[in-house]
Write a protein that binds this DNA or RNA. Structure first.
Lengths: 167, 167
DNA sequence: GCCATTTACATTACATGATATATATCATGC
DNA sequence: GCATGATATATATCATGTAATGTAAATGGC
């Protein structure tokens, strides 16, 4: 067994470590979504959630809301539009803008997600985080250990779905 | 100004958020490396560090040490080998294995990094983390705020380089 | 009213994570 | 000693982040 160098290097490789842990969490979140028959990449959820909460947004506003680059949004929108989950129109006035909004199918998917998937994900992640305390590095270590011990879907399975409602 | 939906969704999008924060940190780390004339992607540092600490490793061992997939290592090695920083040979015995080791140039780069760049990165990241306390989500928020306020290179600039020695 | 600048978005190219699969070598059962 | 399965690595493909750049529309100085 080889030691985990990223963990060992501490603050030096915190970025790499956060990224790595985030990817694992996201991958496991996707498993939970798939279990609830939500055929959607976990990474696209925040985009739909933003439209659901804030109403129609432009490409630039979506980039801000999600904290990723504008080309990233453009590409996601292609997929989501092909899948019929969002639609866009050129609003009257400034014709450079695109107003992105949820389609009926998109709203239905969000509604289903809120009911069937999101509470499970939240519970599982909250459960995962419960053990973590102390400094950030300590908390990350605790998360990594906990995640290796039991992935999210295992946690979701044994947690009574609280069914907390989403805004 | 649009609200940060990933932050608002809390545990639901923790994976996305960690990934995003990690990417930002890594990008800023790279700036610090570039400032010290270390022409190396931040993501390749742990690989070289592993070879430096643990001696020659196989592709599989490197994947374990870095916590990423084996194809990811194979691809990184292509670049590093092209750049003359690592070399590989087929060790006697099992001819499926590759023994990856630092070249002279690779060792020199690591030595220079340890002296000029790594202490600065560590100080800056430690400084960044210093403000964070409380739950993981609270700490992440603190990090995001702190990072928006002053990127790593600004922190490194105002921190006296402690020059802590690396193993 | 026209030209320069800015803004909003799209496109391209690249990096780096993943999985799936091919290939070469080793190990094993018989 | 050969077929079978396991293991180490390479390759192909996809997803999704970035930066750099192109294009169309809006804005502002004169």
């Amino acid at each position: 067994m080889v030691t985990d160098i990223v963990r060992e290097l501490g603050h030096l490789t915190l970025g790499t470590r956060l990224k790595r842990l985030g990817e694992r969490l996201q991958a496991q979140t996707q498993v939970l979504l798939a279990q609830a028959d939500i055929g959607l990449p976990a990474s696209h959820c925040p985009l739909l959630a933003a439209l659901d909460r804030l109403g129609p947004l432009s490409v630039g506003e979506l980039a801000q809301a999600m904290g990723i680059s504008q080309p990233g949004i453009s590409r996601m929108l292609e997929t989501l539009q092909t899948d019929g989950l969002v639609a866009s129109r050129r609003p009257a006035g400034d014709r450079r803008l695109r107003a992105i909004e949820l389609t009926k199918a998109g709203r239905a998917l969000i509604t289903r997600s809120k009911r069937l998937a999101w509470p499970r994900v939240e519970s599982a992640v909250a459960d995962l985080c419960a053990a973590a305390s102390g400094s950030l590095l300590e908390q990350l270590s605790a998360l990594e250990v906990a995640l290796a011990d039991a992935p999210l879907h295992a946690r979701a399975a044994r947690i009574p779905a609280r069914g907390r409602k989403h805004a």
